[in-house]
Amino acid sequence: MNNIKKNRLLDQVFKFWGIACTFLGLILLTIFIGSIFVDGIQRIDWDFITSLPSRKAERAGIFTALMGSVWILVLTTIIALPVGIAAAIYLEEYAKESKMASLLEVNISNLAGVPSIIYGLLGLEVFVRILEMGASILAGSFTLALLILPIVIVSTRESIKAVPKSIRDASYALGASKWQTISQQLLPASFGGILTGIILALSRAVGETAPLIVIGALAYVPFAPASPLDEFSVLPIQIFNWISRPQHGFEVNAAAAIIILLLITFVMNGIAVYFRNRWQSKLK
């Protein structure tokens, strides 16, 4: 009897411990975002967003960094998307059981685990030096595109896999070829899932700092970039730079820029989750 009581008590204790753990991270995150909000929100105004960087904290803005992030995001998408989706289609629909397929699979799984800073070293040697792109937006975009490639491939594969087999059967039975079945049935049916994966991958790219520092992106860029071959900064690098300054004014700037960066990240994540839910309920 006593033993049973003790076990039930332990069970309850663990349940509360579990709840506490589940919310611990979220509570810490809330506290943190709250404190950043208090620090940074009064600094955010139109001027902050549209001003060029400056040595004076109260005059500095994030315009060049924001534009750099937008450039990087667009180019990274253009580079990573076609390659990633094509590779996923190949793995899921063509390579299935072959030896090459299993090699590709191990390889992609490994790439997904390579630290982002290593991609920076790759980009530094290949894009910046050998291909002579310099520390440009283009070099940064290629570097980040390679970084998110495994994520795009994995999520695209999952989405294609989720399309019911009966749709494939129906298409083949009507005389469709493999590519017709893929392009006209499988891709449209998995579109929502693919989109979700891509947005999540891009939200990762927009927050990446280390690889871009390694390829030589600058903290101080006086003008907004106008072409893919221009030097650039991005939001996270601007934040990092401000954090490293001793003056309190820059800490406030960093907090304000973090609010903007988090807003972008969370909105992207929110959109991704929305698409995923809509897609999943449509698929059923």
């Binding site: 995150l29 996270p236 934040i239 954090i243 800490e251 960066l261 994540n269």
Partner: peptide, 19 residues
């Protein structure tokens, strides 16, 4: 919970240093 992993790491760095 997955949002915790989505927060850019530079932001976490700031959190560690200032909070």
């Amino acid at each position: 919970l997955e949002l915790l992993a989505a927060v850019p790491t530079v932001v976490y760095g700031f959190f560690a240093l200032t909070v």
